[in-house]
Design a protein around this nucleic acid. Structure first.
Lengths: 126, 126
DNA sequence: CTCCTTTGCTACAATAATCGTAGCGACATG
DNA sequence: CATGTCGCTACGATTATTGTAGCAAAGGAG
């Protein structure tokens, strides 16, 4: 019934090594079959919690748990799934010292999203 | 199980008057209980097809069907639901002459999203 | 006034995505 | 060893999204 799907973000990981290196399999982004970068990006950002996660990491790194709390205590399942996607697409990374943070590319993206803050304020006042 | 929900975008509309004026009920946006404008906005945009719909309307109005086709033939159910949300939040409107188009506010929002196009291009090349 | 097409919109069952709660193994500290 | 945190997963329950059909209200052509 679906046209294309992220076959299943991540299948199974052997065990639980404190830090699991991201394996490079499934594209992680379903992306409107055209493959046009913008569409792929819009699709990626248009998934629940993705924008929020990026936003919460805009000026600091957060541990997996802190990140969940920052996102209104979102389900660990989905936050983890989003983190995997964002890592696979090179926007986010797990710091060697621990905690998640934006990559250089991720910060570039966030820079283009920052104006949303101002817009939101104007928007609120109709 | 849910913390907050869009009780059900729209229940039932009496009949099918060619153009149904949006009724003002449910907030339409669940928005991370904090109520902070940015969060509400991120939540709204973080729903499937929302960003895409706005994007497709960036430089032209489209009829409901044309809009669906532009969005990779997304399900009419979901496109309609998103359109309702976007109308309720004043970002999109149904032109008297027919077809959906961005409101002034909607265009403001889109203006802040346009840079995503350039980013996406850079992003593609890693 | 019919026939025909388009428009905005809905119903419905099936499927996929998301949610909550619980918990694992690895590692560090006391 | 006992305790705590870390990144991460399992799994049943609940929503959200998908596809397919189709309705009623205009509008146009004949």
């Amino acid at each position: 019934m679906m046209k294309t799907t992220t076959k299943a973000a991540a299948k199974k990981l052997a065990a639980n090594p404190r830090q699991g290196k991201r394996r490079t399999k499934e594209p992680a982004v379903r992306g409107s079959r055209t493959g046009r970068p913008v569409m792929v990006l819009l699709d990626l950002l248009g998934r629940r919690w993705t924008l929020r996660i990026l936003w919460e990491l805009r000026e600091r790194s957060l541990t997996s748990r802190a990140l969940r709390e920052a996102c209104d205590d979102a389900s660990p399942t989905i936050v983890q799934a989003r983190v995997v996607e964002l890592r696979d697409t090179g926007l986010l990374e797990l710091n060697p010292a621990g905690g998640y943070g934006l990559t250089a590319t991720g910060q570039e993206l966030l820079a283009t999203l920052l104006p949303l803050h101002q817009f939101a304020e104007r928007w609120r006042r109709q």
